[in-house]
């Protein structure tokens, strides 16, 4: 695999994850448990849309052929999205959203730290800026998970159920293929096995403090690198792409 092709694919993986999670978090708009959290979740969403846009712009320059950040974000079909499966999972209750946020922002935190040392200048610039944002996302969601785990009986039960539900999608975040191999060999992207180790340390700390136990991994669901999704993505896309699809060629 050529390096440029691998970079393109790698951009999509990160950008798609950010786009889809941003879309999910935006669903909380006017639905938060308190106004402050309504704003916090849509603020994280806004950060993630911004991160997605940066990498789509980079990907569009590699792709050429009049591709733009918007055409990549809005005009592909389901199998051409490579977001991590966890990002497309439904928001559920506030506990599900916060547990998902811990699992995913901890992943971004370690991935971006590694990308800060990438040989690719664009990735480096992206990661340095985005790292500051995801550190806040991780702190915010960790504080909530600890609060919910140690709050009432109900909040504890809901948080444990959330973790049990989502844990099956965590293996997918660290899957590697020829894209990773090419980029690792060029010093552009990290070995996900290393990221997995640091991630496990971080999330274990959070869940231990929250008095939640990490469930057994007897049901693993993966496939994002190949564009194999859960049933949820198609619905997210039909809503997100509605205007772009209904009025082809229109500019907004």
């Amino acid at each position: 695999m050529k390096t440029q092709e691998a970079i393109y694919q790698y951009c999509l993986r990160i950008a798609d994850s950010n786009l889809i999670l941003a879309q999910r978090l935006a669903e909380w708009c006017s639905r938060g448990p308190i106004l402050e959290e309504d704003l916090a979740m849509t603020n994280i969403s806004l950060d993630l849309f911004g991160q997605a846009e940066t990498l789509y712009e980079y990907a569009a320059t590699i792709k050429g052929d009049n591709a733009t950040a918007d055409s990549l974000a809005f005009l592909r079909v389901e199998r051409e999205y490579f977001n991590r499966l966890i990002t497309e999972q439904p928001n559920g209750d506030f506990a599900v959203t916060m547990v998902r946020e811990v699992l995913f922002s901890a992943y971004q935190n370690h991935l971006y730290q590694a990308l800060c040392k990438s040989n690719d200048e664009m990735f480096r610039g992206f990661a340095e800026k985005a790292l500051k944002e995801v550190k806040y996302h991780l702190r915010h969601s960790s504080e909530w998970v600890i609060r919910l785990g140690g709050g009432t009986e109900e909040s504890k039960v809901r948080s444990q159920a959330a973790l049990n539900e989502l844990w099956r999608f965590t293996v997918d975040m660290f899957e590697m293929d020829e894209v990773d191999e090419e980029l690792i060999s060029m010093g552009i992207a990290p070995d996900m096995k290393e990221i997995n180790k640091s991630w496990m340390k971080t999330v274990t700390e959070v869940f231990t403090e929250a008095e939640l136990h990490i469930p057994d991994l007897n049901n693993v669901i993966k496939g994002s690198n190949k564009g194999i999704h859960t049933e949820h993505l198609g619905h997210i896309l039909s809503e997100m792409q509605y205007l772009q699809r209904a009025f082809p060629g229109a500019t907004w």
Partner: peptide
């Protein structure tokens, strides 16, 4: 309309606007 905003820029502007409104509320 947040989930259906037709471009990345439109999404960002609308989300930021709604956040401003919520902030005004606070």
């Amino acid at each position: 309309w947040v989930l259906r905003a037709p471009s990345l820029r439109a999404k960002k502007i609308l989300l930021a606007k709604i956040q401003d409104e919520g902030g005004h509320g606070l």
